[in-house]
């Protein structure tokens, strides 16, 4: 199938700003799904609120655009009620880890086979540039006019600690790696988390004088390095990208099917 077959052209143009990284994630997602050769009817995309969450409407899957922070809770209902469906949940950093933090850690703990893609642009874009739990200290935002004092979450470490069985990080600069990682994440039998470092030139870039989209993407190339590279030893500040965790552990829906068998036999 052609790339265009995965999008709803009727609903374009999209609402993202020029230079926004979310369109690159959309591209990466489509290429991942295309390679997998899955039927569009088998895929449900569930999203919350924010710029990133609008990605669902543009894709020609079963799409559920929900309320702020709760996408993973809706997705859990979809997946558990019909485990044969592939459920993908694109989220922003604020959506996934601030208002939706509780659902994030519990979905990871259950190891339910949902693919969570956290599009981390370190800012609340839809509401105009407020600091998120990923903004980081020293940065500027419309609600941190003197500099942000909030420490950041590390999405990868948090997902690992909460029990996710597939954890990866990539960026919008490394679009081929992104497509490969998303493909592996969708195939993974368990809760998978993919952090995609994305750029918001309109708010984060402008507030923090990081230039336009091109400069911000170049920066993502400079500040990241593949997992286990020599560069990381030389410069510990570099952010690693790649697949951090890929574990085989009991998946929630499979486990529940065993409960059904037990209950039907013994009740």
């Amino acid at each position: 199938m052609a790339v265009n077959d995965y999008i709803r052209e009727r609903f374009f143009p999209h609402l993202w700003c020029a230079g926004c990284g979310h369109g690159i994630v959309l591209n990466g997602l489509i290429r991942a799904v295309e390679k997998l050769g899955m039927s569009r009817n088998e895929i449900v995309m569930v999203s919350g609120i924010g710029c990133s969450s609008r990605i669902s409407g543009y894709m020609d899957f079963h799409t559920l655009h929900t309320i702020h922070g709760r996408a993973l809770a809706f997705a859990t209902g979809v997946k558990l009620s019909k485990p044969e469906l592939n459920v993908i949940v694109p989220m922003g950093d604020g959506d996934a880890l601030s208002i939706g933090g509780n659902h994030f850690i519990h979905a990871a703990r259950r190891n339910i086979a949902i693919t969570a893609i956290v599009m981390n642009n370190r800012i609340y874009g839809m509401t105009g540039g407020q600091y998120s739990p990923l903004t980081g200290p020293g940065m500027l935002a419309t609600t941190a006019p003197y500099s942000n004092i909030d420490q950041s979450f590390d999405i990868v470490e948090m997902a690992k600690a909460a029990g996710a069985t597939f954890v990866a990080r990539t960026t919008t600069y490394h679009v081929h790696q992104m497509a490969d990682i998303i493909r592996s994440a969708i195939l993974h039998e368990g809760f998978s988390v993919v952090e995609v470092m994305s750029q918001c030139p309109t708010y984060f870039g402008r507030k923090n004088k990081q230039g336009g989209a091109v400069e911000m993407m170049k920066r993502m190339k400079e500040i990241t390095t593949p997992i286990g590279s020599k560069k990381k030893v030389e410069n510990p500040d570099l952010i690693e990208r790649g697949i951090f965790v890929e574990l085989d552990k009991p998946e929630y829906c499979s486990e529940y099917n065993q409960i059904i068998e037990r209950a039907m036999g013994g009740y």
């Binding site: 709760r70 809770a73 809706f74 859990t76 979809v78 558990l80 009620s81 019909k82 659902h103």
Partner: peptide, 22 residues
């Protein structure tokens, strides 16, 4: 299917998701 969710909000969201699968 029965699931004890992490909170009240999640429970309401989960049933909406499940309703959409029929």
């Amino acid at each position: 299917k029965f699931i004890q969710m992490e909170d009240e909000i999640a429970s309401m969201c989960a049933i909406i998701g499940a309703s959409l699968t029929g």
